[in-house]
Amino acid sequence: MKIGVVVNDISTEEAWYDTTLLLSAAVHKGHDVYIMGVGDLNYMANGHMGAFAVKVKNGKSRSMENFLKNIQADAKERVHISSEELDVIFLRNNPCEDIGDRAWAQTAGMIFGQIALEKGVLVLNDPYSLMTAFNKMYFQHFPEEVRPRTLISRNADDIKEFYKEQGEKIILKPLQGSGGKDVFLMDNSTNLNQIVESINRYGYVIAQEYLPAAKDGDIRVIMLNGKILEIKGKSAAMHRVNKADDIRSNIHAGGVPQKAQITDEIRRLCNIVGPKLKRDGMFMAGIDIVGDKIMELNLDSPGGIVSIEKLEKEKFAAKIIDAIEKKIEYQKYYDGKLPNSYLATLDV
């Protein structure tokens, strides 16, 4: 199997990213794996998607640090690969990281992924659905039962009114964002105007009801094919505990991963969102749960597998690669006639 993995930029990848672990799992299973940044993609004169990529070597590195260092060192000697040669393109770039000077890169992976899809390459997650889901507005299409009460606006007066309705305690964050960046707790605050103005520079503001359970952190659950990813009864999930005096539990923001207790309530919430994720071709998703609500869906480059594997002592990354292998097998049985969004979440 030949897999192309798209990231924001090879030079900015980190050893502790899930993408590094997934690359390692794929090459150790004997697959040809190519990593490329969104700026390395191109449209070829023959109508295929192409890319200047680094072929990942199975170097038996003892650490992810050395494994990634070798990949980045090889970036000077890239090879050209096209959708004629690839079986799978795994989109692992995060559009939110390209706000600003690299705005051109935000949708590039999805756009070029659509070209590859039309040429018979399996693209994960489905790039047409990702185009409607690369900001947090997508979450509002899920049942109200699973979501906190939310207002999305650029109007400061709207947000002030919502703030009063919620007892002057809400969460503010940008519509496009990740990793806990620019997330604020407004609690009887006097600087609401300044915070709204600051977030407005990047687009729309999400004002969300504050959930008291957030003081205990959140539960990150990895879903695959519309279901919780599990091995031998162990779930791909972790409890992310906030640092003192910080509402954010993201690992990027200093959250501490601990083993998660998968309750009936967590399973119920995942079961509710699963059918739409499956219908939309969302092969892999990260679900952030606080109390009895889902706070966010992470669909572009959902992470947590590195921490979860350490906690649970199971090879979840290898199981993700196994799932891709099965999809390619079925794609060949049906001679490419299965729609990408269907095949992306086919659970076989």
Rank of each mutant, 00 (worst) to 15 (best):
Q176P: 00
Y202D: 05
L211Y: 00
V196Q: 08
N200C: 13
V183S: 10
I159R: 09
K169S: 00
D158W: 03
V183R: 12
Q208D: 08
E197L: 07
N188K: 15
T150N: 02
G203Y: 02
D157L: 13
D182T: 00
K173S: 06
Q166V: 03
A213S: 09
E165R: 13
Q194W: 06
N200S: 15
Q194F: 04
G179D: 07
G179L: 11
N188Q: 15
E161W: 00
I152L: 11
L211H: 02
L211V: 03
Q208S: 07
A156H: 06
R154L: 03
V183Y: 13
G179P: 02
I171H: 01
I170H: 07
K173T: 05
V183M: 14
A207H: 04
I171F: 05
R149C: 02
K173G: 08
D187G: 00
E209L: 06
I170N: 04
Y204P: 00
D187S: 10
Y204G: 04
Y202P: 00
L192F: 00
F184C: 06
R147Y: 04
G177L: 10
Y163K: 03
Q176S: 15
G179I: 05
V146T: 12
R149T: 07
E168Q: 15
A156V: 13
M186H: 03
L211K: 04
I206K: 10
I170E: 07
T150I: 11
Q208M: 10
Q194N: 13
S189A: 15
I159S: 03
P174F: 14
N155C: 06
E161A: 13
S189I: 03
I171A: 02
I195T: 14
K169N: 01
L185S: 10
T150E: 06
I152P: 01
Y210D: 13
R201N: 10
L175Y: 02
K160H: 15
I206M: 15
A156F: 04
N155L: 05
K173Q: 05
M186Y: 03
Y163G: 01
K181A: 07
L151P: 01
V146W: 05
G203C: 08
L172R: 07
R154M: 13
I170V: 13
F162E: 03
P148K: 05
G167M: 11
R154Q: 14
Y210R: 08
K164N: 09
I170M: 07
Q166K: 15
K173D: 04
R154S: 10
G180A: 09
K181D: 08
P174A: 14
Q208E: 14
Q176V: 00
I159Y: 04
L192Y: 01
I171E: 06
Y163I: 01
G167C: 06
L151V: 14
S153M: 06
L175V: 11
I170F: 12
I171T: 02
Y163R: 05
Q194S: 14
L185Q: 09
T190V: 06
L211M: 13
